[in-house]
Amino acid sequence: MKIALDQEKCVASGQCVTAADAVFDQRDEDGIAVLLDVSPGPEREAEVRQAAAVCPVLAIRIES
Rank of each mutant, 00 (worst) to 15 (best):
A12G: 10
L58D: 15
A12K: 09
R49S: 10
V23A: 02
P40E: 06
F24D: 00
V48R: 00
A22I: 02
D25L: 05
V54R: 02
A12M: 08
A20I: 00
E63G: 09
E63S: 11
V54I: 14
Q26R: 12
P40G: 02
D30L: 09
A59Y: 09
I60G: 00
D21P: 15
G31Y: 07
A22W: 01
V48C: 03
P56L: 07
A12P: 03
M1R: 01
A33C: 11
A12W: 05
D6A: 05
R49Y: 01
G31L: 13
K2I: 10
S13P: 00
V11A: 11
E63F: 08
G41Y: 01
A53T: 12
A51L: 05
C55L: 11
K2V: 10
P40K: 05
A12Q: 09
S39L: 03
E47F: 03
S39F: 02
P42Q: 11
S13N: 11
I60P: 00
G41A: 09
K9F: 04
S13D: 14
A20Y: 02
C55G: 06
Q50V: 02
A19C: 12
V54Q: 01
E8R: 11
E43I: 06
A4C: 06
V54S: 04
I32Q: 04
A52N: 10
L5Y: 02
I32D: 01
A22P: 04
M1P: 00
V57F: 04
V23H: 00
E63D: 14
I3F: 01
E43N: 10
V11Y: 03
E29D: 15
A12N: 10
G14V: 05
A19S: 15
D21S: 08
K2M: 06
V11R: 08
D25K: 07
V54W: 00
V17G: 04
T18S: 13
T18Y: 06
V57S: 06
K2F: 07
A20Q: 05
V54F: 09
P42E: 13
E43W: 05
G14S: 03
V17I: 13
E45I: 12
A46V: 12
L58G: 14
D37N: 13
A4V: 14
V57Q: 07
D21R: 02
G31D: 13
Q7I: 14
C16T: 05
E47D: 15
A22L: 13
D37I: 10
V48H: 00
D21V: 04
T18A: 15
I3W: 00
D6H: 10
Q7V: 15
L58V: 08
S39E: 15
A19L: 08
A53P: 07
C55I: 12
V48G: 00
S64D: 15
Q15L: 13
Q15T: 06
I60Y: 01
D30W: 05
V11K: 12
V38Q: 13
E29W: 09
A22T: 13
R49P: 05
K2Q: 14
Q50E: 15
D37V: 15
R61A: 15
A20P: 11
R49A: 15
E29C: 07
D37M: 06
S64Q: 12
Q50P: 03
A51P: 08
V38H: 10
A59M: 10
R49T: 13
P40I: 07
A46H: 08
E8F: 10
I60E: 02
Q50R: 12
E43T: 11
Q50D: 14
A52M: 09
D37E: 14
A59P: 07
